[in-house]
Amino acid sequence: MQISDDPMQAGQARGRGARSNAVGRFEPYARQRIDDGWTPEEASVLRTEVARERPRSAITRNASPDLSFDRSVNVYRGCEHGCIYCFARPGHAWLGLSPGLDFETRLVARTGIAAVLEKELRRRTYRPATIAIGTYTDPYQPIEASHRLMREVLEVLRRFRHPVGIVTKGCLIERDIDLLSDMAAQGLCAVGVSVTTLDRDVSRAMEPRVPTPARRLQVIERLAAAGVPVRICASPLVPGLTDHELEAILEAGAGAGAVAASMIPLRLPREVAGLFRDWVEAAFPDRAGKIMRRVQDLHGGQEYDAEFGRRMTGQGTWAALYRSRFEAACNRLGLAREMPALRRDLFEVPLDTPEQPSLF
């Protein structure tokens, strides 16, 4: 008997964000689940699988005019947080996997990436600038607790006195406060904590395996108390669903100790548009039409506009209103729009290596 390709009907995707697992855009064939009567009921629930990759490079370069950094490090592919709006989902198609449920259940840990990063930092031609981490998938997603790849990367960066900017939703970052506070004291570290909503129920539906909003605000408090400069990221701002919370999110972040703020309206590249549309129609049927219409208003009548200069800000009346509200709230709360510049002049290549320790 053929059944629907929507795993939610069988309870298979409990605690996950996407409602389907359509194949990626590069695959020549579609997949259809078949109930042959042999699969035990408990086996139908999706479990997280982690593959290991030996990376050949650690630092990814970009020349985007929309970004404030030109290099980043990604320690994981895919993200167990399961945020339905995640713009990184289409990247899973390059692995022959689905941007849907595969993205949040079939993960890749880039084992040994810290050692590869160290080799790259030791190159004579390397010139330091802030390395961004967490701009693609979250380095502090749940599997970091056992794999500790982010911890290893931070240890390398601290030894080289290299600047790093981190963005996360995960409370596991508190484990590394010892490293982060030491680097922050030297002007080498800043952290952005993403809070998309203050509504626990909306958060649980939209980002099912992310710590609650209150817990993320606590992360800001603890980082700030340790001397780490923190930015509250009200991103993505979902039109018709969370946009009314903008001022409240910024106020909560400032109250927790954030010194700066940022805001990016929802963007839905490639497969994310269909995944988000299916999710919002099921999760919020009473306002799904309003939400999708406003998304289109933000992006010139489309669900996504990929043009530089517009893709991360939106356009039109709603985009202008969001920006005006954001500016007014930041002015009232004393939140900067940019984090303090991190130092590059402290960078130095350690004399010792695992193969040849220093004599001093």
Results as ranks from 00 to 15, higher is better:
Ile220Phe: 03
Arg215Tyr: 13
Ala261Trp: 06
Ala185Thr: 12
Ala184Thr: 11
Pro269Arg: 07
Ser181Arg: 13
Leu198Trp: 02
Ala226Tyr: 08
Thr242Ile: 10
Ala185Lys: 09
Gly253Ser: 11
Val228Trp: 03
Pro265Asp: 11
Ala254His: 13
Met206Tyr: 12
Glu271Leu: 01
Met206Ala: 13
Leu179Arg: 04
Ser235Lys: 06
Thr212Asp: 14
Val193Cys: 01
Ala256Asp: 03
Arg204Cys: 05
Arg204Glu: 14
Val230Thr: 13
Ile220Ala: 10
Ser235Pro: 11
Ser203Tyr: 01
Val272Asp: 05
Ala248Ser: 15
His244Trp: 07
Glu221His: 11
Thr196Asp: 05
Leu217Gly: 13
Gln186Glu: 11
Leu246His: 10
Ser203Ala: 15
Pro211Glu: 10
Leu188Cys: 01
Leu237Asp: 12
Arg200Asn: 14
Val191Gln: 04
Pro236Glu: 03
Met263Leu: 15
Ala254Trp: 00
Arg222Glu: 14
Leu268Lys: 09
Gly255Ser: 04
Asp201Cys: 01
Ser194Ile: 02
Met263Phe: 04
Ala273Met: 03
Ser235Gln: 13
Ser235Leu: 01
Gly227Pro: 09
Glu207Tyr: 08
Glu207Pro: 12
Ala234Ser: 15
Ala190Val: 04
Met263Ala: 11
Leu250Pro: 14
Thr212Gln: 12
Cys189Glu: 03
Ile220Ser: 07
Ala261Gln: 06
Val228Arg: 05
Ile220Glu: 05
Arg270Gln: 12
Leu250Lys: 07
Ala184Gly: 08
Ile249Leu: 06
Asp243Val: 09
Thr242Trp: 05
Val219Asp: 06
Ala184Asn: 01
